[in-house]
Amino acid sequence: MLAFIIRRSLQSVAVLVAMSLLVFVGVYAVGNPIDILINPQADQIEREHAIAALGLDRSLPEQYLSFVTGAAHGDLGRSFVHSTPALSLILERMPATMELALAAMVIAIVLGIPLGLWAGLKPRSIAGRAIMAGSILGFSLPTFWVGLMLIMVFSVMLGWLPSSGRGPTVDLFGVIPVSFLSLEGWRHLALPAINLALFKLALLIRLTRAGAREALLQDYVKFARAKGLTNARIIGVHVLRNILIPIVTVIGLELGSVIAFAIVTESVFAWPGMGKLLIDSIGLLDRPVIVAYLLIIVTLFIIINLVVDILYSALDPRVRVTESKG
């Protein structure tokens, strides 16, 4: 197990280095930020001064090298626009995005697995068909449009829920600002979380349904019935334990993507998260923030994948990672 984690960590470092290089070159190619950042009235001397201050007078390899040296010490550069460290700028926004993403995932899991099971067990029933039809909608409607519709109905027409921002936050453990600890915060969180959850909900319904239908055909289910087990036990233990394996994998991977792609929802609901920061930074060609954001997302993906692999081996005895045999 330990050997496994060490091996994975080394791989992760390699991935991060490769990724940083790609991102750095990519961002460099996008455009020169100096035209946006500097007052058009500035004269040549002021201009050169600014370029030197931002380190943009140096060659790409030089810039990359100094970035990597900094990164090794935990310094991902300073924002051109805000003049504060890019890392802290992003970390400040991270709780908002994390809260939104986790809330969305919880909604998707809590509704998706039971609905998917139902649809899988009773594929011909009216409820089963309705669930599947709903999941097709969840798949095919674009997120931003659904977001706008939610605002139209629940904020504008019914006036039940606010349409933008996080509302008041409460500090969790005294440091992490979160919305979900107050009623007002919940009301702000509801619409964006539902919006972000819809696609994942549809995905989990389909995955669970397909898994359940396949598992039901297996001999071990028939044998479980031949043993005289109750239906509740057959579904809740024999079937669920088997389909949980792909479901956990997908939930893990989707958690990463839900964090990364919260951007659309954050934009629609003016949710002050990392995604919104990224969009703003791209608009201003704020290179250090873009690079730092992408690297943080990659790190998140790596960590999530690691956790999924560990969970996976806990769920599936056949792939269990052992130290003795390895």
Binding site: Y220, F223, R241, N242, P317
Partner: peptide
């Protein structure tokens, strides 16, 4: 009680 034809398939692999 019934014993099935294919022993590889009758036991639940994850329990």
């Amino acid at each position: 009680a019934m014993i099935f034809q294919d022993p590889m398939m009758t036991l639940n692999p994850v329990l």
